[in-house]
């Protein structure tokens, strides 16, 4: 009897275990929280929080007011000396690749600093010129208050941790926001063509 009962119990444990594993990996697709974030956004586009931003030109814009066009958003801190310092160059490259839609007002690039105490308009403008800003369709900005910063980090799923050397390590990516103001896709930070594809597909629809 105890053999059969143990077999039955083991089968039940097996079924429950596989179900639990599947649930905690989105059906064996997401083994890291970064992949999970991307899967979640792709399947359930997320509305963005209304947050006030101050741009490199010193203007104040509401993130919500940028609706009506495709937004490519990345999160930066201008002191970065490692790989993230190349994020700006990737955005300048996107300015070239998407020059047409940008000129038509259909696409806008937006770099948001998660280090607003250090990154003021001067640092942001310097970051853009260092990255060879082509001059059109790219806004660099910082949230105007801590609540805004937190809402952005939560809304986009950005995690920045101290690197122990005074800088940060963060899950850099290119976030794609559709004209309805929803975060619909997250692409690798160093693969602008991936983000470009999403936008071009969206524009073609």
């Amino acid at each position: 009897m105890s053999v059969l009962r143990t077999l039955l119990a083991s089968l039940l444990v097996l079924a429950a275990g596989v179900t639990a594993l599947s649930a905690s990996t989105d059906g064996f697709r997401a083994f890291t929280s970064e992949t999970a974030r991307r899967v979640a956004v792709r399947e359930h586009p997320r509305d963005l929080p209304p947050v006030l931003l101050q741009t490199a030109q010193g203007r104040t814009v509401d993130l919500a007011s940028l609706r009506g066009r495709w937004l490519l958003v990345d999160f930066i801190y201008t002191r970065c000396l490692t790989y993230c310092s190349v994020q700006g160059n990737e955005f300048a490259r996107l300015q070239d690749r998407l020059a047409g839609p940008i000129a038509d007002g259909k696409v806008l690039l937006l770099s948001i600093s998660f280090d607003p105490t250090h990154d003021g308009p001067v640092q942001l403008a310097d970051y853009q010129s260092r990255s060879k800003d082509r001059g059109a369709g790219w806004i660099a900005a910082r949230p105007t208050d801590t609540a805004g910063l937190e809402a952005l980090m939560r809304g986009f799923g950005v995690t920045a941790i101290s690197d122990g050397l005074g800088g940060y390590v963060h899950n850099a990516a290119i976030n794609v926001v559709d004209p309805r103001g929803r975060l619909v896709a997250i692409a690798d930070w160093d693969s602008p063509q991936e983000a470009e594809q999403v936008v071009l597909r969206g524009l073609a629809r």
Binding site: M1, S2, V3, R5, T6, L8, A9, S10, V13, L14, G17
Partner: peptide, 13 residues
């Protein structure tokens, strides 16, 4: 114990 002969189902869990 009656459902856990040789500790198999418990170790699986």
């Amino acid at each position: 114990n009656a459902w856990n002969r040789g500790g198999i189902s418990g170790l699986l869990l």
